[in-house]
Amino acid sequence: MVEPLLRLEGVTRRFGATVALDALDLDIAPGEFVALLGGSGSGKSTLLRIVAGFEAADAGRVLLQGRDIGALPPHARPVSMMFQSYALFPHLSVFDNVAYGLRRDGVARPEIARRVAEALAMVGLTGLEGRRPAQLSGGQRQRVALVRSLVKRPPLLLLDEPLGALDAGLRERTGFELRALQRATGAGFVMVTHDQGEALALADRVAVLDRGRLAQVGPPRQLYDRPATRYVAEFLGAANILEGGLRPDGAVDCAAGCTLRLATPAGCEAGAPVALALRPERIRIVAAPPAENGITARLRDLAFRGDGWMAVVALPGGGDWRVALPADAAPPAPGAAVALAWDAESLVVLAA
C-alpha cells in the first residue's frame, strides 16, 4: 500500500465559538491533484493555511510523507504555496522572481540558471526573463507565480484560487496548462476553489467541505453522478431535490405531485421520508408524462446559455425545478404546460 503524501488526522480549528474545521481526516496520494471545494465559511482556506503553516491546528496532526510537520514554521516545511494575488516581487525580473527561493536555499548559480530556464520553458515564458511583473499579462504573471512555486521541486504544492484573477477564456486555457504541468512535475497539488467547473475539470478527486467537515470526497464524475448529501447535490451542479414518503412497494410519493420509481431500494422502511437528487440535464420533455417518473409542469422562465437552454418549471405541488435542454431544442414559450420524464437510474437517494 502506497503511503499518503499528505495525511490529515482529526484536524480541528476554532475561532472563538466558531468551528472552522471539525476533526477533519483526509489522505492525499503522491502525485494526486485534489480540489477543496465549498462555500464561504466551509473551512477550505483554513485547511490550506494549516497545511502551509500559516495557521496552527487546535487539535489533530498534519503528516507529510509520514512526518508530523505541525510544529514546523512555514519556511521549514517542504511545501510551496501559490497565492491568488500571485505575490510576485514587483521590483524583480521574471528570472529573479523564480530564482528567489533557490537563492535563499543556497543553490549554486549554474544550477539556479539551469532550473529557472527549465521552469520557464515548461510554461512558455522563455525570452521574458528580464521583464518585470508590470510588463506581463495576467496569464503570464500567473505562470511566473506557478513556476516560482515549483522550481524548488516540492512534493506538495498548495494553490489558493490560482485562476481566480483571470478572465473566463484565459481561465479555461490556463487550467489545462496547470493540469499538464502537474502531470509533468509529478508533484501533489491541493487547490482551493469555489468554482465547481474548475474543480471537476482539473482534479483527480474533489473534497467538498461543509461547515468544517468533509461532506464527500471522490472522483469528480462520482460526486456529480452520485452525490451523498443534499448539500453536495445542491452545491455541485445545483440538482433538483425531490422529497416524499416511501411506499410499501418501494416507490416514493413525491411532494411535487408525481410518483417516483427508484432503480435501487431506498434503504429505509415504508413510510419514512426520502430525499432524492435529480440533475436538470437528466430530465427531458415528452409528449405525455408516464405514470411513474414523470410530471406535467408549467414553464415559468427560460434562458439560453450558448450550449443549451435552462428552463425553470413550476410544479403542481408547489416549488420549481430546473430543466436543461439541448441548444437545438425548440422549447415552448413561458406559461406553456410541459410534460417531463426521467429514468429511474437518474434518481439518487440522499443520506441527509
Score class of each variant (00 low, 15 high):
230 R>M: 02
261 R>E: 13
187 A>F: 06
172 E>D: 14
32 E>K: 05
162 P>Y: 00
166 L>R: 07
264 T>S: 15
257 G>C: 09
89 F>A: 11
67 R>W: 04
154 P>G: 05
113 A>Y: 07
123 V>W: 00
338 V>L: 03
260 L>S: 04
125 L>M: 07
274 V>F: 06
339 A>I: 04
122 M>R: 15
261 R>N: 11
139 G>M: 04
352 A>N: 15
205 R>S: 05
345 E>G: 01
266 A>T: 04
49 R>T: 12
144 V>E: 06
239 A>T: 03
264 T>M: 14
179 R>S: 14
81 M>N: 05
347 L>F: 07
6 L>Y: 07
175 G>D: 00
135 Q>Y: 11
194 H>V: 12
116 V>R: 09
137 S>Q: 08
126 T>Q: 15
23 A>E: 13
137 S>I: 08
9 E>H: 11
22 D>P: 14
167 D>F: 08
313 V>F: 06
288 A>Y: 12
135 Q>W: 10
271 G>W: 01
3 E>D: 14
125 L>I: 03
46 T>E: 10
259 T>I: 15
119 A>D: 01
270 A>W: 02
145 A>T: 02
265 P>E: 05
82 M>R: 00
100 Y>P: 01
119 A>Y: 01
112 I>E: 02
219 P>D: 11
244 G>A: 09
189 F>M: 05
189 F>K: 01
96 D>T: 11
152 K>Y: 08
269 E>P: 10
288 A>F: 11
264 T>L: 15
214 L>D: 08
70 G>D: 03
198 E>Q: 10
26 L>D: 04
153 R>T: 12
97 N>E: 01
316 P>N: 07
203 A>Y: 12
310 M>Y: 14
123 V>F: 08
174 T>P: 11
334 P>V: 07
232 V>Q: 03
241 I>L: 12
176 F>P: 11
160 D>T: 07
82 M>V: 15
250 G>Y: 10
105 D>S: 15
145 A>C: 04
153 R>M: 08
288 A>I: 10
91 H>E: 07
84 Q>N: 02
303 A>W: 14
165 A>C: 10
60 G>Y: 10
279 R>G: 09
253 D>C: 08
101 G>A: 07
267 G>Q: 01
328 D>E: 14
193 T>N: 03
187 A>T: 14
74 P>A: 06
179 R>L: 14
74 P>K: 04
53 G>Y: 07
67 R>N: 12
236 L>F: 05
248 P>L: 01
131 R>W: 13
255 A>I: 05
193 T>D: 02
118 E>T: 13
342 W>H: 07
11 V>L: 08
118 E>V: 04
39 G>F: 05
59 A>E: 04
229 T>G: 06
264 T>C: 07
210 D>L: 14
350 L>T: 12
185 T>A: 03
187 A>L: 11
